[in-house]
Each structure stands twice: as C-alpha cells, then as structure tokens.
C-alpha cells in the first residue's frame, strides 16, 4: 500500500541528500518526493510517497526520525487530505490534431502554457488518478516530454501536520 508522509525538516544544506541517502542505503523505495520551503524559511517540508506494508513503514518512519534534521513525520495516508501534483506535458500536435487535444485539455481542466510549431505544452494539476488519466488520453498523440513535480499533500480541515511555529532560531549568544 502506498503511504504519504509529510516530513518537516530543518532547511539545512544536505538535508535532501540525508533523506535520499537513507532511503537508498536501507533499501526503501521512494515512489515520489517533493520538497520545498514552508512559511518558516528555516523549515522545509517533504512529501514522500512510499510503498510498503506497516512493518516496513514503521522502519522507514523510525529511521527517518533518527536523522537529526528531521523534525516531524506524519503519515497522513489514513486521514482525509488533499493532494496535488503538477505535470507539464509536451505533446505532438499537428494542426489537424490540435482541436482534439484542446478538447481534452478542457475536459481535464488543464491549461496550454506554450504553443510550438508542432507541439503543445500542457499544464495539469490534480491527484494521481486524474493525472494518469490525462496522460493516458494524450499518449496516442505522442508525448514528447513529461515532467511531474511529485505529490504534495495537506490534511483537510483544522488539523495540521506542521508544527513549525514553535521553531526557534538558534541561540547564538
């Protein structure tokens, strides 16, 4: 089963290497990983999707916790959450095919962000199901290039996996 982990980390150099290195050396597989700063510039948030059973996830969790730069880990899989991924797709689009592609773009509420002589570049956001469906429907036209950000996720409602407000600057005195 795929688990979605929201991981708060200190925004130190090398923190991504620490997390990625941990996954590779312990033989954990990352399905997707997205990372960026939070509202607190000293803290970054990683959204990591990992496939595995509960025992496996427990090890992933505990090993991640051992990293000094990791502040908090929330496995939000079982909670209600919103997840999004942004994908850019460059698709072959001969003049004759353009209308058809644009129709698909409309249906999926995607956007055309660049128009080339023989290609269209399309941006789409959504959850994994929607993105996979969109990708599948564009495939017959010939996908020239595809890039996805990896999934980001946030709990619904008042609940939060971010506890970074208490984060203090280092005592330099």
């Amino acid at each position: 089963m795929a688990h979605t982990l929201a991981v708060l980390v200190e925004n130190n150099p090398g923190v991504l290497a620490r997390v990625a290195g941990l996954f590779s050396r312990r033989g954990f597989n990352i399905d997707s990983l997205a990372v960026g700063r939070t509202d607190n510039p000293a803290v970054s948030r990683m959204t990591i999707v990992v496939e595995g059973d509960d025992r496996y996830l427990e090890q992933v969790n505990k090993q991640l916790h051992k990293l000094v730069d990791v502040i908090k880990i929330s496995d939000i899989t079982k909670d209600a959450y919103v997840d999004r991924e942004l994908v850019l797709i460059k698709v072959h689009a001969e003049a004759a095919k353009r209308a058809e592609i644009m129709q698909l773009v409309d249906i999926f509420r995607a956007r055309i962000v660049d128009v080339g002589l023989k290609t269209l570049t399309v941006e789409v956001t959504g959850n994994e199901g929607k993105i996979t469906a969109f990708e599948d429907s564009l495939r017959p036209f010939g996908i020239k290039e595809l890039v996805r950000t990896g999934k980001i996720a946030m709990l619904r409602g008042f609940k939060s996996s971010s506890k970074s407000n208490s984060h203090k600057e280092e005592d330099e005195s």
């Binding site: 980390v9 208490s166 005592d171 005195s173």
Partner: peptide, 12 residues
C-alpha cells in the same frame, strides 16, 4: 568567541 549555553535541535 562565546561558548553557547543552550542549543536548539528541534529534530533531536
């Protein structure tokens, strides 16, 4: 030079 009394390691 001043040796700090306290350190903050939120992840440890």
């Amino acid at each position: 030079f001043k040796y700090p009394k306290n350190i903050n390691l939120p992840g440890y």
